[in-house]
């Protein structure tokens, strides 16, 4: 059998050739296109994890809505948390184009078979955490998501474009909370510093394990899912954020942090990866309560969803 024969009779070989061509040309893979099973699986896993993160991410900030110290802040925070729920919806729709249902994904989140970003397993302990989360967590998310607007899977890339606009609002609003706090009373400034102390390292860990230990990175880059590595993105984030911390007059909790004139980048200290993996594996400060909260809301709502279905019939 000649090579030509093989491509013309084996649909997956034709598909593979076309898939490779799409990637090589920097064009998007669309739901109707043939794609390798592993690509599909990776994409589902990544989009689902992202969607779950948006949904679970409502909790740490939702925790402060009822106590927001001004009506304006309450309104901004409510709108932000609502945006995150909206992001979750878009992303579930993007995942559904790959042939998986929202109910299945939900079930995988509840049973722990799919993850969400570990950052949401840390508690929000003061109002200034609403500043730090917006500034650092949404800031880190944007760094990653700006890259993902160019990811190879079309529906995911398009969802990211819409989401990124809102995330940059969130980041600015968070920074503005911090700015107001550092210009406030001594107590407010101390709260802001405490928030930075607690959120800095978890925010750096959001980019995932170092490139040397990252199992998926090489393949994801080959498939155009990721365009930059974890360490590259982390460096970008540090370079962007350290001057902002300086502007706020806050101290980044890293004694090894220093500017390197030659590289034009900040050097920073070692991340505690043992702690990171403990949180990923379920032993962070809030893993259990985040999932319990989510499962309870879902179970409490079972009779409502049933009623909706019964009425529709």
């Amino acid at each position: 059998m000649t090579v030509t024969d093989a491509t013309s009779t084996d649909p997956s070989a034709v598909g593979q050739a076309r898939f490779d061509e799409l990637l090589a040309d920097g064009r998007k893979v669309e739901p109707r296109d043939w794609m390798p099973d592993e690509y599909r699986k990776t994409m589902i896993r990544q989009i689902a994890q992202h969607a779950h993160s948006e949904v679970i991410g409502q909790q740490p900030e939702g925790n402060w809505i009822t106590r927001a110290p001004s009506l304006k802040r309450k309104s901004i925070l409510m709108a932000k948390v609502q945006d995150e729920a909206g992001h979750g919806l878009y992303l579930y729709s993007a995942a559904e184009t790959l042939g998986v249902s929202r109910d299945e994904l939900n079930e995988m989140l509840h049973s722990g078979r799919q993850k969400y970003s570990s950052i949401f397993n840390y508690p929000t302990l003061s109002w200034s955490d609403m500043g730090a989360v917006g500034w650092l967590v949404d800031g880190a998310a944007i760094t990653n998501q700006v890259m993902l607007t160019r990811t190879s899977y079309g529906p995911y890339a398009r969802a990211m474009i819409k989401i990124c606009k809102e995330e940059s609002f969130h980041q600015r609003q968070g920074f503005e909370i911090m700015l107001t706090m550092v210009n406030g009373t001594a107590e407010q400034k101390a709260m802001a510093q405490d928030s930075l102390n607690r959120w800095w390292w978890p925010a750096l860990a959001m980019f995932g394990p170092p490139d040397a230990d990252s199992t998926h990175t090489t393949q994801s880059i080959a498939w155009g899912i990721k365009l930059e590595t974890n360490d590259q993105l982390r460096q970008k984030f540090v370079d962007m954020t350290v001057p902002q911390a300086e502007y706020l007059g806050l101290t980044v909790p890293d004694p090894d942090l220093r500017w390197n004139d030659e590289t034009g980048h900040y050097e920073f200290g070692a991340i505690d990866w043992d702690d990171f993996w403990a949180v990923v594996k379920g032993d962070g400060p809030c893993n259990r309560e985040r999932i319990a909260h989510k499962v309870k809301a879902w179970e409490d709502g079972a009779w409502v969803r049933e009623a909706g279905r019964a009425h529709a019939e």
Binding site: V55, Q58, Q59, G62, I65, M78, V81, Q82, A85, G88, L89, Y92, H293, K294, A297, W298, D300, G301, A302, V304, R305
Partner: peptide, 9 residues
């Protein structure tokens, strides 16, 4: 918020 029966709610 985050306690409703569905994300839409």
């Amino acid at each position: 918020i985050a306690r409703m029966p569905e994300l839409e709610e």
